[in-house]
Design a protein around this nucleic acid. Structure first.
Lengths: 97, 97
DNA sequence: TTGATAGGCAAGCCTGCACTTGCCTATCGT
DNA sequence: ACGATAGGCAAGTGCAGGCTTGCCTATCAA
């Protein structure tokens, strides 16, 4: 569970994808592809991004909703909160809104 | 910088080591070795743990102080806090010192 | 229906990295 | 001084995972 989240966050490209989705939620695969190549200069194939999205999704960091021939991807920050607190417990109070 | 932290956290064994140090700070290499094998059933060589500690240290997650022939390792949770907030921004403004 | 767009599946390559093995240095006890 | 303990260095192995390539399916516009 949390293992998958750490593994998903291990790759720089996947983190970029999360950045991209954080800035603009609900993007399609091609949109993400385009923005990664233009803004970040990453020359990755569509398949690469697709596989990264699969990893992120199976880690629970991205949710996808299909609509016609489009598949929109949304950032789900749920798993991110409880992950680091594992080592911050001793003296770190939580901000739980 | 943050890249190294994510890479360091990617490995399950390294996370166990952080767990071990969180529970009992200031352990030596051999102590960590012993507790990992007994408590978690990990049959790893001493060198493996040593290399893991090197990764954790270069990521800033572990600080080591030498004392005689012993080398004590302390958990430094500093880098852990600012790392996840990167994607939690939407409603949480951060004070970045 | 045809062509274009958005995405999926399945090998295959290839680099990185976790782990081992073997040997070497330094500090402590007696 | 000697052996035992705590740790370091370096080369080698094997597997996981990131990326590509090629082809296939589904939806939309004309």
């Amino acid at each position: 569970m949390a293992d998958d989240v750490f593994k998903a966050l291990a790759d720089p490209t996947r983190r970029r994808i999360l950045d991209e989705l954080a800035e603009r939620n609900g993007q399609t695969l091609f949109e993400i592809c385009a923005r990664l190549t233009t803004k970040h200069g990453l020359g990755l194939s569509r398949q690469a991004i697709s596989q990264h999205l699969a990893v992120l999704e199976s880690a629970g960091l991205v949710a996808s909703r299909r609509q016609g021939r489009y598949k929109f991807h949304d950032l789900t920050t749920g798993p991110l909160e409880h992950i680091v607190s594992r080592w911050l417990r001793p003296d770190a109070p939580e901000s739980t809104p």
